[in-house]
Design a protein around this nucleic acid. Structure first.
Length: 924
RNA sequence: GGGCGGUUAGCUCAGCGGUAGAGCAUCUCGUUUACACCGAGAGGGCCGGCGGUUCGAACCCGUCACCGCCCA
C-alpha cells in the first residue's frame, strides 16, 4: 500500500509506541555484554500532568537515550514518580474540602488511605502522557518514591546519618509556612518584592522621662516579642545609651540596649529592635547576648501572649501598685511606665499578624510613639507552595548536616568526576555548596516518609528502621519496656529524591542492577533544580555509594513563550504539549524542542515554531513518497565503496558529513546542532539537489540518455542514504522514522529503535565528485539568479552558453546536461565559440563566462547595470584583499596559509572583475 | 550589594580571532515526475556604546549602558 499523502501522526504514533513497549524495545538488559548507559529520570510529581518544561527535558533525555541505544549501549532510562509531599497532600486536601471534610477530623490513617486511593486513580496521568511524547522509558522498572523498597532506603539512610551524627534535632528558627503549617527548607522560600512601610518607633529610655531611642522596623507587630535594642558599638550619638534599658512600649518589658555590629549605622537609625524569636538576624543577636526569646506569633501567625504572660502580669502589677499609691498617676501612666498597655496587648490575642500590625501601629501612634513612617519596598520571604509570607518560628526540627556531606560533592566537581554542561553552572553549584546551611528535613505533614524516630516517656529519642528495633533500643536504655511514640513528622520530599539514583536500583540490597547502572552517565535537568536535587543526589550518592551518581550534569534552559515570558497557568500563556502533539504530532514537537535547545539558553517556544518544524516531518514524508514512486528499494548487495557515478559518490559523501556532524553534536549535547544539521542535509541537500538530479535518471526526458545500470545505482544509493537519514533522525523524530523504516522494508516493525547508529563512511572519489556537483549547483544557481533578475519567466526556455570554458568544464556540462536543462530552464547547453548573440545576459563562473541569449527578453540598460554592479563588487573585494596583502605586517605575521588563501582570493576577484569587464564590453 | 547570562537581519537565534550566517517574516516569480506543510530568486546588518590587545576583533581584554535570572 503506497504511503498516504501526509504522515497521520495521531493514528500512527500511538500504534508505534504500543509496539515498542510490547516488544520490550525500551528495556535495559542487565545480562548483556554491552557497556551500560544510564539516565535517571527526574521523577515528576505524581500529581503532575505533562507541561512544556517536561516536554523539553524528556525530549532531550529521550533523544540522548535513543542515540546511545543505537550506538549499542545497554541503555537504562529509569522511570518513576515522586510522592511530592506538600503538593500531593494539598491536592487531596482540596478534594476532601469539596466534600466538606477536614483532614484533621478524618485522622492520619484515613487521610493516608485517601491519598493512596487518589494515587491509584489519578497518579498515572503523567506516565501516560510521557508515552504520547515517545519517551522510551523502561516501564517495567518504574518506581515511586514511597514504594516499599525506596522507603526502606530512606529509613536506612536516616538511621545511618543519625548514628553518624549527621542528622540531629535542634531547636532554632525555621522558615515556617503559616498556611501549610509546616517547616520548610531555605530553598522552598522565595523572596518577593513587597511595597510596605518602614516604621520608626520610639522606645522610652528607662528612668529618663522624655528620652527615647528610635528604631526602624518593617515588622512592627513583632515588637511584642522584643527583648533588646541593638546599637552600633561606636555610634556617634547613641553609643552612650549602651548598657541602659529601654522600656518596651505596650508590653512594659525592660529591655537592654546592647552593642552589636548588626545595627548597621548606614541603615535605618543605627539602632534596631531585637526580636529573637521572629527574625533570623535577631535570633543570632539574641544568642550572642543571651536574650530571652519569646514567641508572640503562633503556628498560624496569629498573636499569642502566652510567652510574654509573665511580663504582662508584672506590668499590670506595677501599674496597679502605682495607681494605688498615687491615684493621680492614672491619667499619666504612659510616661511613667514606658507606655505599657497590658490590657491592649491581651486584646490582641488570636489576631492575625497583619491585623495585629494595624492595631499596634494605631496604638503606638495614639501614644505618640511613632516618630515617622516612610514608604519602603523590600524583599519578603514567601513559601513557594503556600504563597504566603513565611514566619520565622522557634521550633524543634530534624536537621541534616549538609556542610559535611557537601565537601566530597564539591571535590567531585572540582576534580571533574562530575562535569556540568554548560560548565558555568559549576560556579552556581560551588557557590551554594560552599556556603550550605543545615538542611531542615522534617515537615509537619502526613504524606511522606514518616521519620523513623521514637520517643520514650522522658523524651529520649530512639532512631531505628522500625518500631521493634526502636523498642529494643529503648529497652536497653531504660532497662525495662516503656511505651514509645513515633515522631509525627515526615521527611522533606527531596530527602527521598536525593537517593533516587541508587534507591531505584535496589539499594540497600546489593542488586546486579545497582552494580551495573550506578553511577549513571548523564543527568538532564533545569538549572532551577540544581540545589534542590542535583546537589542532594551528589551528597547522598557519594556518602552511601562512595561514587558520584552521574558523570555529566546537562543543564538546559527553561521553556518560555514566544515573548520570553515564563509559562504559567496563572498568566494564561502556558501551551499544553499534548495539544501540540494532537495538532502537529510528537515528532514535530520533539524536533522543535531539539532545534531550539541551545546550551544554557532558555527555549522560546510558540505554536508557530512547532508548525514550522512539522513542515520538516512532512518534507521527509514526501521525500519518502517520491522514492517510493520511483522504485527506490534497498539493495542488500549495495556497497557504497563500489559506486561509480559522481552523483552517488557526492550524496554518499554528503551523508558521511551529515552523520559525522550529527554524531559530534549529540556527543557534545548540542541537540540544536544535531537537529539543524539533519534538517539541512535532508532538505537542502537530499531533497533540493540529490532528488532533483535523480529525476532525469529515473525518468529520462529522451530515450537516448536512458541508462538502466546508472539508474539502478542511483536507486540503490538513494535507498541507502535514505536509510541513513532515518537512523540519523530517529532520536529526534522517532515515530515518522520508525514508520518509514518498516514501510520501506529496511526492517521489521518497531526495529529501527535498535538499529545500529550510522557510521561516517568515506567513499572513493568523493573529492572529485564534490567538486563536480558543486560546479553544477553553482552553475544552476547562477543561471537562475540572472534569469530572475532579468525578469525572464520560468516558462520560457533559453540556451546556456559557456564562453572560455576549459575542456574539463565542458565535459562536466555535457555530463549534467539533463539536470541543467531541467533545473536552469535551459533549451540547450553548449560552448560558445564565435560572436556573442545580441541581447545576451552574462555571468562569470570560475574561468568561464555563462552567456544567456535572451534576445527580446532582456533590457540592455538593466543588464549593463547588473554587470557593472557585479564588477564593482568584485573590484571592491579585490581592493579589500589587496590592501590586506599590501600590509607588510600581515604578510609577515599572519599564518602562511591565511596569506596564501588571501592571495588566491585576490586573484579570483581580479579575474572575475576582468571577465565581467569583458562581458560589459561585449554589450557595447 | 554580589554573581551569572544576554545585547548579531523585522522576529527567533547560530557563529566566538582570518570572506557576517540560518529559520521564520517580507517582496517578486512559479503548479516542472514527491511535497503550496512546495519550488526559484531577491532585498535586509557601522554584530549595544566607548577604549584596548592584535598584522587582523562580532569573536579576546577593560569599561559603560540596557535586559533577564540567581543569591543576599
Amino acid at each position: 500500500m503506497p504511503l498516504d499523502k501526509t504522515f497521520a501522526s495521531t493514528e500512527i504514533e500511538p500504534r508505534l509506541y504500543e509496539g515498542w513497549e510490547r516488544e520490550g524495545a525500551f528495556a535495559c538488559d542487565p545480562e548483556s555484554n554491552a557497556v551500560p548507559f544510564t539516565i535517571m529520570i527526574p521523577p515528576p510529581n505524581v500529581t503532575g500532568s505533562l507541561h512544556m518544561g517536561h516536554a523539553l527535558t524528556f525530549t532531550v533525555q529521550d533523544a540522548l537515550i535513543r542515540y546511545r541505544r543505537m550506538t549499542g549501549r545497554d541503555t537504562l532510562w529509569q522511570p518513576g514518580t515522586d510522592h511530592a509531599g506538600i503538593a500531593t497532600q494539598m491536592v487531596v486536601e482540596r478534594l476532601l474540602e469539596a466534600e466538606g471534610i477536614d483532614r484533621r477530623t478524618l485522622g492520619r490513617e484515613k487521610f493516608l488511605e485517601r491519598v493512596w486511593q487518589w494515587k491509584a486513580e489519578s497518579g498515572g496521568t503523567i506516565t501516560t502522557q510521557l508515552r504520547r511524547l515517545g519517551a522510551s522509558l523502561d516501564w517495567p522498572r518504574e518506581r515511586f518514591t514511597m514504594d516499599d523498597g525506596l522507603s526502606a532506603a530512606v529509613k536506612q539512610v536516616f538511621v545511618t546519618l543519625y548514628r553518624e551524627g549527621l542528622i540531629y534535632r535542634d531547636r532554632r528558627l525555621v522558615n515556617w509556612d503559616p498556611k501549610l503549617q509546616t517547616a520548610i527548607s531555605d530553598l522552598e522560600v522565595e523572596n518577593q518584592e513587597v511595597r510596605s512601610s518602614l516604621w520608626y518607633l520610639r522606645y522610652p529610655i528607662a528612668g529618663e522621662s522624655g528620652r527615647f531611642i528610635v528604631v526602624a522596623t518593617t515588622r512592627p507587630e513583632t515588637m511584642l516579642g522584643d527583648t533588646a535594642v541593638a546599637v552600633y558599638p561606636n555610634h556617634p550619638t547613641m553609643a552612650g545609651l549602651i548598657g541602659k534599658f529601654a522600656v518596651l512600649p505596650l508590653v512594659g518589658r525592660a529591655i537592654p540596649i546592647v552593642a552589636d555590629d548588626y545595627a548597621d549605622p548606614e541603615k535605618g537609625t543605627g539602632a534596631v529592635k531585637i526580636t529573637p524569636a521572629h527574625d533570623f538576624n535577631d535570633f543570632e543577636v539574641g544568642k550572642r547576648h543571651d536574650l530571652p526569646m519569646p514567641s508572640v506569633l503562633d503556628k498560624t501567625a496569629h498573636i499569642t501572649v502566652t510567652e510574654i504572660e509573665d511580663v504582662l502580669a508584672a506590668s499590670e502589677r506595677q501599674i496597679n501598685e502605682a495607681i494605688v499609691s498615687d491615684p493621680g498617676l492614672a491619667h499619666d501612666i504612659n510616661k511613667e511606665f514606658g507606655a505599657a498597655q497590658p490590657a491592649f496587648v491581651r486584646s490582641l490575642e488570636g489576631l492575625d499578624r497583619f491585623a495585629a500590625r494595624r492595631a499596634i501601629v494605631a496604638e503606638l501612634e495614639r501614644l505618640g510613639l511613632i516618630e515617622k513612617i516612610e514608604p519602603h519596598t523590600h524583599q519578603v520571604p514567601h513559601g513557594d507552595r503556600g504563597g504566603v509570607p513565611i514566619e520565622p518560628l522557634l521550633t524543634t526540627q530534624w536537621y541534616c548536616n549538609a556542610a559535611v556531606l557537601a565537601k566530597p560533592a564539591i571535590e567531585a566537581v572540582e576534580s571533574g568526576r562530575t562535569v556540568f554542561v554548560p560548565k558555568q553552572w559549576e560556579n552556581t553549584f560551588f557557590a551554594w555548596m560552599r556556603d550550605i546551611q543545615p538542611w531542615c528535613i522534617s515537615r509537619q505533614l502526613w504524606w511522606g516518609h514518616r521519620i523513623p524516630a521514637w520517643y520514650g516517656p522522658d523524651g529520649s529519642v530512639f532512631v531505628a528502621k522500625d518500631g521493634d528495633e526502636a523498642a529494643a533500643l529503648a529497652l536497653a536504655h531504660y532497662g525495662r519496656a516503656e511505651p514509645l511514640a513515633q515522631d509525627e513528622d515526615v521527611l522533606d520530599t527531596w530527602f527521598s529524591s536525593g537517593l533516587w539514583p541508587f534507591s531505584t536500583l535496589g539499594w540497600p540490597e546489593k542488586t546486579p542492577e545497582l552494580a551495573r547502572y550506578y553511577p549513571g552517565d548523564v543527568l538532564v535537568t533545569g538549572f532551577d533544580i540544581i540545589f534542590f536535587w542535583v546537589a542532594r543526589m551528589m551528597m547522598m550518592g557519594l556518602h552511601f555509594m562512595g561514587d558520584v551518581p552521574f558523570r555529566t550534569v546537562y543543564i538546559h534552559g527553561l521553556v518560555r513563550d514566544e515573548r520570553g515570558q515564563k509559562m504559567s497557568k496563572s498568566k494564561g500563556n502556558a501551551i499544553d504539549p499534548l495539544q501540540l502533539i494532537d495538532r502537529y504530532g510528537a515528532d514535530a514537537l520533539r524536533f522543535t524542542i531539539c532545534a531550539l535547545t541551545g546550551p544554557g539558553r532558555d527555549v522560546k517556544l510558540g505554536e508557530a515554531r512547532v508548525k514550522d518544524y512539522r513542515a520538516f516531518v512532512t518534507k521527509l514524508w514526501n521525500a519518502a513518497r517520491f522514492c517510493e514512486m520511483n522504485d527506490v528499494r534497498i539493495d542488500p548487495a549495495f556497497d557504497p565503496a563500489s559506486v561509480s557515478q559522481p552523483l552517488c559518490r557526492w550524496i554518499l559523501d554528503a551523508a558521511r558529513h551529515a552523520v559525522s556532524e550529527g554524531t559530534d553534536a549529540l556527543e557534545d549535547y548540542r541537540l540544536d546542532e544535531y537537529a539543524l544539521s539533519g534538517y539541512r542535509f535532508v532538505w537542502n541537500t537530499f531533497c533540493d539537489w540529490f532528488l532533483e538530479f535523480a529525476k532525469p535518471v529515473f525518468a529520462p526526458g529522451d530515450e537516448s540518455s536512458a541508462d538502466p545500470a546508472a539508474a539502478a545505482e542511483v536507486r540503490a544509493t538513494a535507498a541507502h542514504v535514505f536509510g541513513i537519514i532515518l537512523r540519523l533522525l530517529h532520536p529526534a523524530m522517532p515515530f515518522v522514522t520508525e514508520e518509514l523504516w518498516h514501510r520501506f522494508g529496511y526492517g521489521d516493525e518497531w526495529t529501527l529503535i535498535r538499529e545500529p547508529w550510522p557510521e561516517a563512511v568515506t567513499v572513493p572519489g568523493a573529492e572529485a565528485a564534490r567538486a563536480e556537483l558543486d560546479w553544477v549547483v553553482r552553475l544552476i544557481g547562477l543561471v537562475r539568479s540572472v534569469r530572475t533578475e532579468m525578469n525572464v519567466p520560468p516558462s520560457s526556455l533559453a540556451p546556456v552558453l559557456l564562453r572560455d570554458a576549459s575542456p574539463e568544464t565542458m565535459a562536466r556540462a555535457e555530463r549534467w546536461i539533463e539536470a541543467i536543462r531541467r533545473l536552469a530552464r535551459a533549451s540547450e547547453v553548449r560552448a560558445l565559440t564565435g560572436e556573442m548573440p545580441a541581447g545576451s545576459a552574462q555571468a562569470v563562473l570560475d574561468e568561464a563566462t555563462v552567456v544567456l541569449p535572451l534576445s527580446g527578453l532582456i533590457d540592455v540598460v538593466a543588464e549593463r547595470k547588473r554587470l557593472a554592479g557585479a564588477r564593482d563588487k568584485a573590484l571592491a573585494e579585490a581592493t579589500k584583499v589587496s590592501q590586506k596583502l599590501a600590509n607588510p605586517d600581515f604578510v609577515a605575521r599572519a599564518k602562511p596559509e591565511v596569506v596564501e588563501e588571501n592571495r588566491e582570493r585576490l586573484a579570483a576577484f581580479q579575474a572575475e572583475a576582468a571577465r565581467l569587464e569583458a562581458a560589459l564590453a561585449r554589450i557595447e
